[in-house]
């Protein structure tokens, strides 16, 4: 995206130091109002709900909420499961994206549409669908249970499954986009130099689309962290094993909105910290 992974020809002209400021050039000229105005309105639209949370937060009662004993197990579980779901998405999603972007086979566009199904499906429906497949009496779950004694619903692994289900499409779509944007001639060059297709993927393609993979992972992680519907439907809600932060927030909202707001803030602060930390490190974009 920033182009610094490419041995591109404009490196010579743009940057005396590698991390120089080629972007300053792009800032020349005034920002058009036609772009600035909607951008500012959009920003306000996205940020105002956060302001609402901050204004309504029960600051004086914050200590008792944080010391309540439900926050930390839920937060820990949320971070662990979201990270695990992102790992699963990476493991399965990157190869899937490569398949979609770099190979030709009949029904490929249908396959791409199918990948986006979890995006359009209401998460609760996704949860029911997961139950029908991986539940104790599900198509696959029945077999898992009888052959290995594994049941996914009501377990932490079940949370990961539910989160990966809704988060993976985000990763697949971003990585596929990055792959399409990347110049396939580098891979062809690698092939002419004797690299197998897998070696070319590993040594050339992966580094080339690393920013896309990082961006996709961040999206998937964020989506997994906020996942509610599929999780509560498929994995249930039990403190410590399946009660993630969004579930704790929802249930607190039932009888104590102030606590729910406090819990939401904790989740927000942690996720923003993690995302800001990752942005600087991985994607190389300005944090």
């Amino acid at each position: 995206m920033t182009g610094r992974h490419l041995p591109a020809d404009d490196v010579i002209s743009s940057a005396p130091t590698r991390r120089g400021r080629p972007w300053r050039r792009r800032r020349a000229g005034a920002v058009p109002v036609a772009l600035l105005l909607p951008a500012v309105v959009g920003l306000a639209f996205l940020v105002l709900p956060l302001v609402g949370l901050l204004v309504r937060a029960p600051w004086s009662g914050m200590g008792s909420v944080l010391g309540d004993g439900t926050v930390w197990p839920a937060l820990r579980l949320s971070l662990i499961t979201a990270t695990a779901a992102t790992a699963v998405s990476l493991l399965l999603g990157v190869p899937m994206a490569w398949l979609l972007a770099r190979t030709e086979f009949p029904g490929r566009s249908l396959l791409r549409t199918l990948v986006t199904v979890p995006l359009v499906m209401p998460p609760v429906v996704g949860g029911v669908a997961l139950l029908l497949v991986f539940g104790r009496n599900g198509l696959v779950g029945r077999w898992l249970d009888s052959a290995f004694g594994i049941t996914l619903p009501f377990t932490t692994a079940g949370v990961v499954v539910a989160e990966a289900f809704v988060a993976m499409p985000f990763l697949v779509l971003s990585v596929e986009g990055a792959l399409r944007g990347a110049d396939s001639r580098y891979e062809e060059a690698a092939a002419t130099l004797g690299a197998s297709r897998f070696t070319a993927f590993r040594r050339v393609t992966l580094p080339l689309v690393a920013p896309g993979i990082a961006a996709g992972s961040v999206l998937a992680w964020a989506r997994a962290l906020g996942e509610f519907g599929a999780t509560i439907t498929f994995a249930g809600n039990f403190p410590g094993t399946t009660q993630t932060m969004p579930l704790a927030v929802y249930l607190a909202l039932q009888d104590d909105p102030a606590t729910a707001i406090a819990l939401s803030l904790v989740l927000l602060v942690v996720s923003v910290l993690v995302l800001v930390g990752l942005r600087g490190r991985w994607t190389g974009g300005p944090a």
């Binding site: 619903p153 009501f154 439907t233 809600n237 039990f238 929802y250 249930l251």
Partner: peptide
């Protein structure tokens, strides 16, 4: 000690119907 605390009665019922 339940395996889950459901968000409403319908969800609890669904878990029984689906034999979970």
């Amino acid at each position: 000690t339940p395996v889950t605390y459901e968000q409403d009665v319908t969800s609890a019922l669904t878990k029984v119907e689906l034999k979970e």
